[in-house]
């Protein structure tokens, strides 16, 4: 329970001033206890889902934003005593005024931690930056920037992860990302539920590096406060395409629900975990679930004949 002393709210675990109030738990935490609480929950998630069992080399996908900075920092702290190698992978989408501000910060953090950094760009992999793609899409009812970015980013990260021979690929998805993705799946009537599993991906195949999401139970605000308290930079740099697509609307809707009914995000996550497990069991026992093809254009694994990256690129070039 939050304790108020005059006008300042005190930590529920000690007498220091609180830096965050957790409505879902009816408690408040000071700097020290928030940092401890976030790290403890990440460790518990890793243990519970056996995310690092047998791991020798973790690739951490970093965007330079708060989630991936916190993920890299905590994973590095956990992996070091376990003698697990950590490499940061940064995808440069080619967004002017955004990514160019973030890359120096990512370089600084990885250098401070002593973690190698591998940078790959959309331009190298597809011949186009995201800015160029969006210019080509102008005045046409094409896919949103987030669709291109999400698909190309997954493709790029998987490709680099395989090149580096990492055996785990850590993604900084937090509780809010998981809940928004689940809601968007419902609203679009898509069957991409397995893509956001805490461990593993949409398709289980040796050509995909096993993905882990150690932050999936941590609310985004707690990660943001953790990042600010740790002095991470780039926390406030906003992607210029952020207000495009369905996600911002879903984000606002879920946040309104959470404010009115604390604990809503955790309940939606729990529902997702239960539903996705049932669907996942059914899917993997079916013929469709066992069938993995190679993309007829690039050779990457896909459940169709052409992977989503090549399909988007083909559509784009037809419109050019």
């Amino acid at each position: 329970m939050a304790v108020r002393d005059g006008k300042m709210v005190k930590c529920s675990l000690c007498n220091k001033s609180a830096v965050i109030h957790l409505s879902y738990a009816n408690s408040s935490l000071c700097e020290k206890h928030l940092i401890h609480s976030v790290e403890r929950r990440v460790k518990r998630t890793i243990r519970e889902y056996k995310m690092l069992d047998g791991a020798k080399h973790i690739g951490v996908a970093i965007s330079g934003g708060k989630d991936s900075q916190v993920l890299l920092y905590i994973l590095h702290k956990i992996a070091k005593p376990m003698r697990i190698k950590v490499t940061a992978i940064l995808v440069d989408e080619g967004i002017e005024g955004y990514r160019d501000k973030i890359i120096p910060e990512a370089k600084k953090l990885t250098s401070d931690l002593g973690v190698p950094l591998e940078i790959v760009s959309f331009k190298e992999l597809t011949n186009y930056s995201l800015d160029e793609i969006m210019k080509m899409q102008k005045n046409q009812r094409g896919e949103s920037s987030c669709t291109f970015c999400g698909v190309f980013r997954r493709y790029a990260i998987n490709k680099v992860a395989k090149m580096l021979k990492v055996d785990r690929l850590a993604i900084g998805h937090n509780l809010d990302d998981m809940v928004q993705s689940y809601m968007m799946n419902i609203l679009r009537n898509e069957d991409l539920l397995f893509r956001f599993k805490p461990i593993g991906g949409a398709i289980e195949d040796e050509r995909f590096v096993m993905r882990i999401r150690p932050l999936f139970r941590i609310p985004e605000k707690e990660i943001a406060v953790y990042a600010v308290l740790k002095g991470f930079k780039s926390v406030f740099v906003e992607c210029p395409y952020v207000n495009e697509g369905l996600r911002p609307m879903v984000r606002d809707f879920v946040n309104s629900l959470e404010s009115k009914y604390p604990g809503t995000k955790f309940k939606i996550l729990q529902n997702y975990l239960e539903v996705s497990k049932k669907i996942s069991d059914q899917f993997y026992s079916s013929e469709e679930g066992k069938k993995i093809n190679s993309c007829s254009i690039c050779g990457e694994p896909t459940s169709s004949s052409v992977c989503k990256t090549c399909s988007l690129l083909s559509k784009l070039l037809r419109k050019e």
Binding site: A2, R4, K7, M8, V9, S17, A18, V19, I20, H21, S28, E31, S63, G65, K66, I95, Y98, C146, D176, E220, K221, A224, V225, A227, V228, L229, V235, F236, V237, E238, C239, Y241, V242, N243, R247, P248, R251
Partner: peptide, 23 residues
């Protein structure tokens, strides 16, 4: 950094920073 339950008055200097961003 304060919580939303903390109290402020006219003599305080308040800074509100959006931290939930995309990208």
């Amino acid at each position: 950094i304060v919580t939303e339950l903390d109290k402020v008055n006219d003599s305080d200097i308040v800074e509100i920073q959006k931290v939930i961003l995309g990208g």
